[in-house]
Write a protein that binds this DNA or RNA. Structure first.
Lengths: 106, 106
DNA sequence: CCCGCTTATGCGTGTAAACTCATAGCAGCC
DNA sequence: GGCTGCTATGAGTTTACACGCATAAGCGGG
């Protein structure tokens, strides 16, 4: 079993993904770089909120940004999030299939 | 990009792992079935808290339980959590290595 | 049937964090 | 220099949830 400190780090990481807003931002950026204004429009959240979430993601090393004139262009750093989501998706699917079978056999 | 509802489900799932207590319970159970009393002793949390966390994990389909006399034996359902933690671990390692290199090249 | 043991659940509290408003910083343009 | 558009951040509110205490529920033994 992982050490308590490691568990703490893991859970901290998962916490980042536990907020729909942040996860959405990550998924949007996974498709390509975007500036903050575009992310605000795509998500519908307030400007300050989006900026804060991006800050958190950046500190965690999940996104990076570069200035482009007056705009900040954010981009996702790798496809870890996609992999994690795929695993969870499989799990959800398996679970639904199992429920379906139980329903049919009843 | 996943639909908003799907993102909501994903984030809800990650939220389960975002609490060290729950993650610890999952990792303990990943090694083998245990009853609630053992989990209480291993984690140091209150009885009610452990029971509640187990309830959440059970509803999410991550653990299951069977009565054994007066005891409830919980067990982890699969190794999804291990896979997720491995991915995150790799990510953390990569990040630290990158920081190390930056430090050395400076 | 009552009692002890183990687990589940209402209820209250405290804290962490999401979210907003207002304001400050920062780059380009006049 | 001031002005405007884009982003970051301090401050305050509100909501969500972890956590414990007390209590109930379920099972085995007398």
């Amino acid at each position: 079993m992982p050490s308590p400190q490691l568990l703490e780090e893991y859970s901290q990481f998962f916490r980042l993904l536990s907020e729909p807003a942040r996860l959405q931002l990550l998924c949007l950026l996974a498709q390509g770089p975007l500036d903050v204004a575009s992310l605000i429009e795509a998500t519908g959240f307030s400007q300050s909120h989006v900026s804060r979430q991006l800050g958190q993601l950046q500190r965690a090393g999940l996104v990076s940004c570069v200035r482009e004139g007056v705009r900040m262009i954010y981009s996702a750093d790798n496809d870890l999030v996609n992999d994690l989501c795929s695993l969870v998706q499989n799990r959800l699917r398996q679970r639904l299939e199992a429920q379906l079978q139980q329903l049919q056999s009843a």
